[in-house]
Design a binder for these strands. Structure first.
Length: 257
DNA sequence: ATGGCGCCACATTGGCGA
């Protein structure tokens, strides 16, 4: 079972690239973030023609999440239960016995922004919810854009970024709290190249200079981590014309999990 | 040097992302 997560930064603009990604990588399921589409504009017909069922939760201009799957999507839920939030950041569904939680975690903007405490509180609510979800669904994956680079090795220039949003200690502590629930950072289950990132600034030739951060992650519960046979970042999608500023992340799960 | 790029919107500039 091949799973992917990709912040597409506008599904309207990136649909041709997504269709190319589906055709060439053949993932079983994909979690999308920043679709930036109202639900009535979601390209369900195009994705159905490509062989994918879809569930989605969108809004105008900002945020928006979706799950694509070649097989049935069951028990769909939107948002974090009990949390009032107009921002469409979470959608979950069960695919072939695996619970997929698609997340677009808040950016936070800067440490002195009111969006920063919102981000920290959002992570606390996510952790509270996932703690229960892991009991309900032992085979659970949380995929998406976390907007947190967990360690200095996930940052192209740790000294330049020290203490800023996306790398600050309170944010990293929230990320570690997710791991403490029993989730594994799939990327670190395997030997990986140094300076491996999932996001690069559009400006200043960030990608060409590999000035990036690893902020998109696939976290796996213990049973899925034990069956995971590979994890990678798909840098090729970032090399295309008019790319998203994020690259997709991928995992392969053995069928015998 | 707080810019720079890209996307979106009741657009021709500003908000936001990260």
């Amino acid at each position: 079972m091949k799973l992917a997560a990709w912040n597409v930064n506008s599904l309207k603009v990136r649909l041709p690239q997504l269709l190319d990604f589906l055709a060439t990588r053949q993932p079983d399921a994909v979690c999308l973030q920043e679709t930036k589409l109202l639900d009535e504009a979601f390209p369900a017909a195009e994705l159905a023609a490509a062989g994918y069922r879809v569930v989605f939760a969108g809004q105008k201009t900002y945020n928006g999440v979706a799950i694509l799957s070649r097989s049935n999507l069951a028990d769909v839920s939107v948002g974090i239960p009990g949390v009032e939030d107009e921002q469409k950041r979470v959608i979950a569904a069960t695919v072939d016995g695996v619970r997929l939680v698609c997340v677009y975690c808040p950016n936070g903007q800067s440490l002195d922004s009111e969006k920063y405490p919102y981000k920290l509180a959002w992570f606390d609510a996510l952790a509270d919810w996932l703690k229960n979800e892991l009991v309900r669904y032992p085979r659970l994956a949380v995929l998406g854009d976390y907007n947190v680079a967990p360690e200095d090795r996930d940052v192209h220039d740790p000294e330049a970024w020290r203490g800023s949003v996306l790398v600050s200690e309170p944010e990293r502590e929230r990320f570690r709290k997710l791991l403490a629930l029993g989730l594994k950072d799939s990327f670190r289950l395997f030997e990986q190249p140094e300076k491996a990132f999932t996001w690069w600034d559009y400006r200043m030739m960030g990608f060409r200079r590999n000035h990036g951060l690893r902020i998109d992650h696939i976290l796996l519960s213990e049973p899925l981590a034990a069956a995971c046979t590979g994890a990678a970042i798909d840098r090729d999608m970032r090399k295309l014309e008019r790319p998203s500023d994020h690259a997709p992340v991928l995992v392969e799960i053995g069928m015998a999990c």
